[in-house]
Amino acid sequence: MTRTRTAILISGGGSNMEALIKASQSDPDYPAEIVLVISNRPKAAGLTKAASLGIPAVAIDHKDYDSREDFEAEMQRQLISHNVDFICCAGFMRVLTGQFVSNWAGRMINIHPSLLPKYKGLNTHARAIAAREPWHGASVHYVTADLDSGSVITQIRVKVDDDDTPESLSQKVRAQEHNLYIRALKFALLDFTPRDPSTSDKR
C-alpha cells in the first residue's frame, strides 16, 4: 500500500508523537509514514526521541524569526523538502496564521485535551473541574483558522471524580490520548488523496 507521508509538529516531550511513530513503524498497513518531526523549541525532548527512532528531527526556533510568517515559511520549506502530504500537531504550542492553515486545509490535524467544542485553548483540566463537569476528555480535530474549532474526527472521555485535581485529570486524559491519536490519524487518512506533486510548491 502507498502510505501518506506525514510530519509531526511538537513543542515538548512528544509522547503522542512517539506513539504515532511507533504505530507507523510497527504496522506496515498503517496508512501514515512519519517522515519528519519539527519543533519550535530546540531543547524539546521530543526531538531526541524522534531521532532515536530514525525520524529526521528539525528544530526551528520561532524566536529566531521576526514574524510568524517568516517562521512558518521555514517550516513550509522543510515540509516541502521532505515531500510531506499531511501534518499532525502534537503538543505544538504555536498559533498558526490563517495563510499557513489555508495551505494545509484538510491535511492538518491536532489533538486537544477537552471534549470540544468545550474548553478551547489552555488550562482545560482546571476549567472542567471548576465547572463541575462529570466528564472530560480529549479530541482530535482538523486545524482551521479559528483556534480548536475544526471538525472533530474522534474523542475519548474520562470520568471526573470529586477528588480530581488538574494534574490527576491530566494524567487520566493522557493515558487515553495515544491510542486516540493513532486511531484518529488512521481514520483521517482512509479517504485521503495526496496532492499532485506538481502543485506542492504552491502549498
Rank of each mutant, 00 (worst) to 15 (best):
V37Q: 05
V37W: 00
S39H: 01
N40H: 15
R41D: 13
R41F: 15
R41K: 12
R41H: 13
P42W: 03
P42N: 09
K43C: 09
A44F: 03
A44S: 04
A45V: 03
G46L: 05
G46T: 08
T48M: 10
T48K: 15
K49D: 00
A51I: 02
A51F: 01
A51R: 15
S52N: 13
S52I: 06
I55S: 05
I55R: 03
P56C: 08
P56V: 13
P56R: 10
A57F: 02
A57G: 04
A57D: 08
V58M: 12
V58D: 05
A59S: 12
I60P: 12
I60C: 11
I60A: 09
I60H: 09
D61L: 03
H62S: 09
H62E: 03
K63M: 11
K63G: 12
D64K: 15
Y65K: 10
Y65N: 04
Y65G: 03
S67I: 03
S67P: 02
S67T: 14
R68W: 11
R68P: 06
R68M: 12
E69N: 02
D70E: 15
D70Y: 07
D70T: 12
F71E: 01
E72F: 04
E72T: 00
E72M: 05
A73D: 00
E74H: 11
E74W: 03
E74F: 04
Q76F: 06
Q76E: 15
R77V: 12
R77M: 14
L79I: 06
I80L: 15
S81H: 08
S81T: 11
S81D: 15
H82S: 09
N83D: 13
V84W: 10
V84T: 06
V84Y: 10
D85Y: 10
F86Q: 05
F86K: 06
F86W: 05
F86V: 06
I87M: 00
C88E: 03
C89Q: 10
C89L: 13
F92H: 00
R94C: 14
R94D: 13
R94N: 11
R94Y: 12
R94E: 14
V95E: 04
Q99E: 14
Q99N: 13
F100K: 07
V101P: 04
S102G: 14
S102E: 14
N103Q: 12
W104T: 00
A105P: 00
G106Y: 07
R107S: 06
R107I: 08
M108V: 07
I109W: 10
N110S: 07
N110K: 08
I111T: 13
I111A: 13
H112I: 09
H112D: 06
P113E: 00
P113Y: 03
L115K: 11
L115S: 07
L116D: 02
P117E: 08
P117L: 11
P117R: 12
P117V: 08
P117C: 11
K118P: 07
K118C: 11
K118N: 12
K118F: 11
K118S: 13
Y119I: 07
